[in-house]
Nucleic acid binder design. Structure first.
Length: 828
RNA sequence: GCGAAAGUGGCGGAAUUGGUAGACGCGCUGGAUUUAGGAUCCAGUUCCGUGAGGAGUGGGGGUUCGAGUCCCCCCUUUCGCACCA
């Protein structure tokens, strides 16, 4: 009975994992040689207790790169840790009565054990967890640095309120008006909380994107869009009755003569100062109430009807001294610009719709070209493009950028306006009214106001509490022992800030803690940070494009400004891996019941098979549809091709750093040597692009062509075998290490060096040249690699198939691409 | 609506800078071996055509000796932002 080859994967896996741990293969030097370091980082992970396919893919990509860099002789930093604060722990506490800390730490244990079984080359001696006091002490320190420089501010503001989790959310945590985590419809609420003034860095955050050539364009585009910088003019309109200034922001100063009404956001406190009376007062009050009750999503619905109400008051356009009606309208956003707009119905689609609905005047001030409509009443839609100004006094005829500049300059000269830049980006709201987070290290004193907790009293540790049920205020507020303190400044009675920080604060600086994870005196050593940073390759999902990836750039710039680091971008290269879907292209989720566990696959087929299958299915940045079919090919390759390689090994102990002399090789030896070098070249390029699928296919081809019976040189035979093992090692580390060890080579394959190709041996003796006639392929000829163009042409013109297309016709031109093709251009 | 990316065999996907489209793998077909095989090996496999040959990278134009690759228009899909004045 023919026996199926059975490989004891588990034995090989555990043997090498143990050996690697004992030999501290992944242990990193404290201070690397700055020119020879590689910081490989995968994104901070929430310890949910299980490892799914997405994690698996993320980590094996990082692992392959880390191992290859290690082979290339780099000092590799490849750490891992846990983004361990957050709501799931609190939910578990509420539902099952387990303390969030206990729940989190036990999840970390489980996740860590699983990851260790996967054989990822993390340096576990640098593991960190953001929920532990030795870490969050420094998160608090970061907060205080911000506070001291006026970048952490407390203010009352309209916030996104999650009515399910009963906490504030950052804009980045709201998707289409719904809370990303809980799924609840987000409400608007006015609340006091802490903000990081990330808007102070808006320009740098946009401009420095140009310093990141190795970041994907889509991420950079998303960040630009998110920050949303726009240049324009702020114009001071005046409220007729009170004389109060009513500044508005516009990017279209060239339409200022077309203003026919003005509109204020319902949230604006300006309304309170209008001294409304009678009927208008009541209507406006009613309107504000209903508008504010509407959720963001209802208000933002692009198709939704715009509505509003007239205040009974008028504003004066400083350019024309004309009085226009002042409205309250919910299409005006309180949080952008000044919360009020000038309305130009003829040249803005929203204003047009609004004016039509409420029968407000429409005045054309921009010519739309040709026989343009100049009567607003006859317009079908707003003309929003640039064109020559008309009905605009001294500015008539100017258009586009020139017009905008002229109007803006005039406004500045007359002191009725100023050029300003506005951003969509808002200050980062970081207060959370929840328990399981990093306490805000601030004490509120009646006399001194908010005071930072002195450094020597950090960390402010989380107290134990009885009840985590969300009630809309932090559970810490109900712990008097925690809350009641004396003011560090005046010694008087004071209270702690009861809120905890957004977990994105914790993950904004973790990459720096890894360089010095056990430092008790500082968040990290500057020397180590400057040596290891920036991250050379940062791998994670695209989901963080406008959240974490902006925050951690912001922190980096801030720390540079206060002198802690000397670089201004945290990651040189960013790579977003594609999602893992099920075989039908559906997102894997527990509710759909289509989750395939990488652990189950590894248990059944072995870790290296699971890894190769994931790598081989698609390039790393593409979405993958995981199916059993994808495993078949690589499993056969590993079992039937890779593992038996040593059967033909001849123990000649070749020096792998030494090239052969191509001229000394003949016949098959020569061919396979060329193939070997082509493979090395192709693999190296594939690794650089993180396209491991093509690296695997290159090694498959090499082994397909490899035929030990035809190789005469023992050293060459063994070089092919050993280099194939080296090339596949970052992708299938356990198998490769096993083979390497069985070959009798010294030490770990991961210390053996990455193969270099012999530049003299990537072209074979005979090359195939494509012969085209008028650009169409007619024949393919084999010629010696060193053939001259004349020699190639001679063979080409001898070809019957070529003759059939050239005979009797005049050759006009011959294009020869050396080593590739000959194109004969004929006429007639 | 705005912005970005992508459309290649039955399928996953190859093809740095324009230079033999379909590497590698799955699947399928035929054969070998075998008591048998869901094992292994060999051969074939873009489509049309018996063939010579022709067509072919979402569709249509263009640049070029030559286009999957560059330019223009259109279609489709995915993602992001969505009243940002």
């Amino acid at each position: 009975m023919a026996e199926k080859k059975r490989i004891d994967f588990k034995q090989i896996e555990s043997k090498w994992q143990q050996r690697w741990a004992e030999d501290e293969l992944y242990r990193t030097a404290d201070l690397p040689d700055k020119d020879n370091k590689f910081y490989m980082l995968v994104m901070f992970a929430y310890p949910s207790g299980d490892i799914h396919m997405g994690h698996f893919r993320n980590y094996i990509i990082g692992d392959a790169v880390a191992r290859q860099q290690m082979m290339m002789g780099k000092n590799v930093l490849h750490p891992f840790g846990w983004d361990a604060f957050g709501l799931p722990a609190e939910r578990a506490a509420i539902q099952r009565g387990i303390h969030p800390e206990e729940w989190t730490l036990s999840n970390i244990e489980v996740s860590k054990r699983t990851l260790q079984k996967v054989g990822i080359s993390f340096d576990w001696s640098r593991e960190i967890a953001s929920c532990l006091p030795d870490y969050y002490k420094w998160t608090q320190w970061m907060f205080i640095q911000m506070f001291k420089r006026g970048l952490a501010v407390r203010k009352k503001s309209w916030v996104n309120w999650d009515p399910v989790d009963k906490t504030v959310l950052a804009n980045e945590q709201v998707k289409d008006g719904f809370a990303e985590r809980s799924g609840a419809k987000v409400e608007k609420k006015e609340l006091v909380g802490w903000y990081f003034k990330i808007t102070d860095y808006a320009d740098q955050l946009i401009d420095d994107l140009d310093k990141l050539p190795e970041w994907p364009d889509n991420v950079k585009a998303m960040q630009r869009e998110w920050i949303g910088r726009s240049h324009g003019l702020e114009v001071d309109f005046v409220i007729e009755e009170t004389g109060e200034k009513l500044p508005i922001f516009t990017t279209r100063p060239d339409t200022i003569y077309g203003v026919t009404y003005m509109a204020i956001a319902p949230e604006s406190d300006l309304i309170d100062r209008l001294k409304l009376d009678g009927e208008h007062a009541k209507m406006v009050a009613d309107y504000r109430q209903t508008a504010l009750a509407r959720s963001e999503i209802d208000r933002a619905a692009a198709t939704g009807e715009k509505d509003g109400v007239f205040t009974g008051k008028y504003a004066i356009n400083p350019f024309t001294n004309e009085r226009v009606q002042l409205w309250v309208a919910d299409y005006v956003l309180a949080g952008y610009g000044t919360g009020a707009v000038m309305a130009v119905p003829a040249h803005d689609t929203r204003d047009f719709a609004f004016a039509r609905k409420y029968k407000l005047p429409i005045r054309v001030v921009i010519q739309s070209g040709g026989d343009s409509v100049t009567d607003g009443a006859l317009l079908d839609e707003a003309f929003v493009e640039y064109g020559p100004m008309m009905n605009s006094d001294r500015f008539n005829g100017l258009s586009g950028a020139e017009a905008i500049a002229a109007v803006s300059d005039f406004a500045e000269k007359e002191s009725i306006g100023r050029k300003v830049t506005n951003y969509k980006l808002k200050d980062w709201s970081i207060s959370r009214q929840r328990y399981w987070g990093c306490p805000i290290p601030i004490v509120h004193c009646e006399k001194c106001g908010p005071v930072a907790v002195p450094d020597d009293q950090l960390p402010v540790t989380l107290p134990k509490v009885e009840n985590y049920l969300p009630k809309g205020r932090s559970p810490l507020a109900d712990v008097p022992e925690f809350m009641n303190v004396t003011c560090p400044e005046c010694g008087g009675k004071a209270e702690r800030d009861p809120d905890t920080m957004d977990t994105f604060v914790c993950s904004s600086w973790y990459q720096l803690r890894y360089v010095d994870p056990h430092n008790e005196k500082e968040p990290f050593s500057r020397e180590k940070a400057n040596a290891w940073m920036p991250i050379d390759l940062y791998v994670g999902g695209i989901t963080h494009a406008t959240g974490h990836l902006i925050y951690f750039r912001f922190f980096t710039k801030f720390l540079r400004d206060i002198g802690w680091i000397d670089f201004d971008e945290p990651a040189r290269r960013l790579f977003n891996h594609g999602m893992v879907m099920d075989a039908h292209g559906e997102v894997m989720s527990k509710s759909k019941g289509n989750v395939v566990s990488p652990v189950a696959v590894m248990e059944e087929r072995g870790i290296d098979v699971a890894r190769l299958a994931m790598f081989f299915t698609a390039p790393s940045d593409k979405e993958v549809m995981w199916s059993e079919d994808g495993i078949t090919g690589v499993e056969k390759f590993l079992i039937n091709k890779l593992l038996p390689l040593l059967e033909s090994y001849r123990s000649s102990m070749p020096d792998l750093k030494q090239y052969f002399n191509l001229n000394d090789l003949t016949g098959f030896d020569r061919n396979i040597y060329v193939k070997l070098n082509q493979t090395v070249k192709k693999c190296s390029e594939s690794f650089e692009r993180l396209q491991f699928n093509t690296a695997i296919s290159a090694v498959m081809e090499l082994i397909r062509d490899y035929d030990p019976d035809k190789i005469s040189s023992d050293q060459l035979n063994d070089s092919v075998v050993l280099k194939a093992i080296q090339l596949i090692a970052p992708l299938a580390p356990h198998t490769a290490e096993e083979l390497w060890s069985l070959s009798g080579m010294d030490g770990s394959v991961f210390r053996s060096g990455w193969p270099q190709f012999d530049p003299d041996a990537i072209v074979g003796d005979m090359i195939e040249i494509a012969v085209q006639v008028n650009g169409k392929l007619r024949d393919s000829i084999n010629v010696p690699a060193d053939s001259s163009q004349d020699a190639v042409e001679q063979v080409a013109f001898d070809s019957e198939r070529v003759k059939g297309h050239t005979d009797g016709r005049q050759v006009i031109k011959k294009i020869y691409v050396p080593g590739r093709l000959l194109n004969i251009v004929v006429k007639g």
